[in-house]
Amino acid sequence: MTEHPTAGIDETVHQRHRLGILTIAAEAKRVEFGYLKSTLELTAGNLSRHITVLEEAGLLEVEKGYDGKRPKTWVSITNKGREALAAEMAALRALLDRHDRG
């Protein structure tokens, strides 16, 4: 008997805003906090909490700096984060296939 696709779902990654953060971060070298906030339509507090969870899980790295006098926070995905995202996407596709097969 094959394992049910939900077994491949990681609770830290599965939350849809965190999936969105990882997806965008995986597409670039690094992403700025403000870009994530506007693209995902999240409040600063909410986004900050999701980023902290992903950073503590070792899936994201956070770099704080300045652009002139303005503070900027940059986020980049780690190798572990890429693997977790790929596993989550595979689990979602497997779930969809299973659902389509009925």
Partner: peptide, 21 residues
Amino acid sequence: MNSTDPKGLLDELARLRARAR
């Protein structure tokens, strides 16, 4: 992001990826 079903979620993630790109 509003979708909760796998297909809707995958579609939204594809849209996010394309936008970032």
